[in-house]
């Protein structure tokens, strides 16, 4: 979905399911985008040249895979890439890392940019970060593709539902794949071409 002729389409692939999908995707299709792959750590995901690890943005020795501790490293990561070039975020709503990013996007989107003027004097306040990032990227203009997974765990299912709802309210357009092994080549091809209707893409549904 090109915004203008010369703009660069960026995709942020978040988490292990996204990495697996990225690796299955046709390289010629991927060439149409600037791809950023974000993983939590290399311990369980393995070392991948194309990936960036959230743990590398953390100063503590053992970064917990929990919502709150992820905030600061993710802020640091967002600051390190050109967020305004990201058009599409891809990830599994079952993964906590992706859930956290969607939550942060929702918070940024719904926060009042001019709220609490006193916060401006705090150099590293979250509000300060939110204001800066909110200026850099407007989530209401970005899109998200949620990757489906067959998960037997009730907790994860309910978290994924909440993430879907948040994503739908935050992003410009949100889609979900209909099955675990969905091929997203066609989706990405249509996404890269403004003239083609994405909603007609098989195996991917708009939510």
């Amino acid at each position: 979905m090109k915004n203008s002729e010369n703009s660069e389409n960026g995709i942020l692939w978040v988490g292990d399911k996204a990495l697996e999908t990225y690796q299955r995707t046709d390289k010629n299709v991927l060439k149409a985008f600037t791809n950023h792959v974000l993983l939590f750590d290399s311990t369980h995901s393995g070392m991948h040249e194309e990936a960036t690890y959230v743990k590398d943005f953390d100063d503590t020795e053992h970064l917990a895979y929990e919502s709150n501790p992820l905030t600061e490293p993710l802020q640091a990561y967002f600051s390190s890439i050109k967020m305004n070039t990201i058009d599409l975020m891809i990830g599994s709503p079952y993964e906590l890392l992706f859930q956290k990013i969607i939550s942060m996007a929702k918070e940024i989107e719904s926060s009042d940019k001019n709220k609490n003027a006193s916060d401006e004097y705090q150099l590293f306040s979250f509000q300060h970060f939110k204001n800066r990032i909110a200026n850099e990227m407007d989530f209401s203009q970005k899109n998200a593709l949620l990757l489906n997974q067959d998960i037997p765990f009730l907790d994860m299912i309910s978290d994924a539902k909440a993430t879907r709802t948040k994503a739908k309210r935050t992003f410009n357009q949100t889609w979900t794949t209909l099955s675990e092994k969905t091929d997203i080549n066609e989706f990405l091809f249509r996404f890269s071409e403004t003239s083609m209707e994405i909603d007609k893409c098989a195996d991917v549904e708009k939510i």
Partner: peptide, 20 residues
């Protein structure tokens, strides 16, 4: 179902408690 992905997510979520 990709059980390896399931395992990865699970082990990460419980890593702190398991280590403790």
């Amino acid at each position: 179902m990709n059980r390896r992905l399931l395992f990865t997510e699970l082990i990460r979520r419980h890593e702190q408690n398991i280590r403790k």
